[in-house]
Amino acid sequence: MKKVKFLFYGIFLLIAVIMVSCYPGGAEYYSDTDIVATDYDSAFFATHTVQTYYLVDTVAYLTDDQEDVDHTYDALILSTIRDNLNAIGYQPADTSSATPPDVLVTASVTTSTSVGWVPGYPYYPYYPWWGYPGWGWYYPPYYGGYYYSFSTGTLFITMGDPNDPQEDDDGNIQFPVVWTSAFNGMLSSSTQDMKSRIERSINQAFAQTKVFHK
C-alpha cells in the first residue's frame, strides 16, 4: 500500500506542475500590448463647429536626454494625424491669416524601460552529499528564471482650443485640451512593425472618438 500512497502523492505533484506549466499566457506579440485611449470635452464639441486646425510640425519628446531621441517615426506620426484630421472634415488653417485656427493639435512621445526577473522552476544542479555522508557542504540551489527588459512608448495627441487661452498660476498661457489620445504599447525593434502599429493606432484614435463622426 505504500506504493499506492507514493502514486497518490506523485499524481498530486504532477497535477500541480501541470497547473503551473499550463498557466494561461496572455500577450504573445508586441502588437498585442497596444492600447488606445481617447477622451474629449463634450461641452466644447456641443458648442463649437470645428472647421480649421493647426498641426504643430514637430513631435515633442518628453525626455531630458534629447540627443538620444529617435526621430524615425516623426514624419509618419505627423502625416497620419494630418490625414485623419482631413478625413473628418477639418481643414488646415491658413497660417498667413490673423484668425487663429479652431483647434491646435500637438503630438508628443514618452518612453520608459522596465526591467525585472521572473522566477522559474527551482533547479538543483548537484547534490554532493548524496552518497557522501559527512561532507557537510553542498552547492546552493540554483533557482531558474530569466531577466526581462522591455521598453514601452506612449504617443500622446492632444487637441487644444487656442481661442480660449487661460493663465496658470505661474502666469503661463495655456490652451484647454478638448481632445486627447494616448497610444501605449511595447516597443519592438522592427521598424516596419512599429510603423504599421503607429499608423493603425492613430487611425484607431480618430475612429473611436464618436464626436468626430457626427
Binding site: 494561461p24 499566457g25 485611449a37 464618436k210
Partner: peptide, 26 residues
C-alpha cells in the same frame, strides 16, 4: 480545489461617456 478560467478577448473598443479605450484583453 483550484480552477483556472481564462479567455482571450479579441480587439474591441470599450466606451464610457466621452472616454474610449481599445485593445485586446486577457
Amino acid at each position: 480545489s483550484w480552477h483556472v478560467f481564462y479567455d482571450d478577448i479579441p480587439f474591441d473598443v470599450y466606451e464610457e461617456g466621452s472616454r474610449a479605450i481599445s485593445g485586446k484583453q486577457y
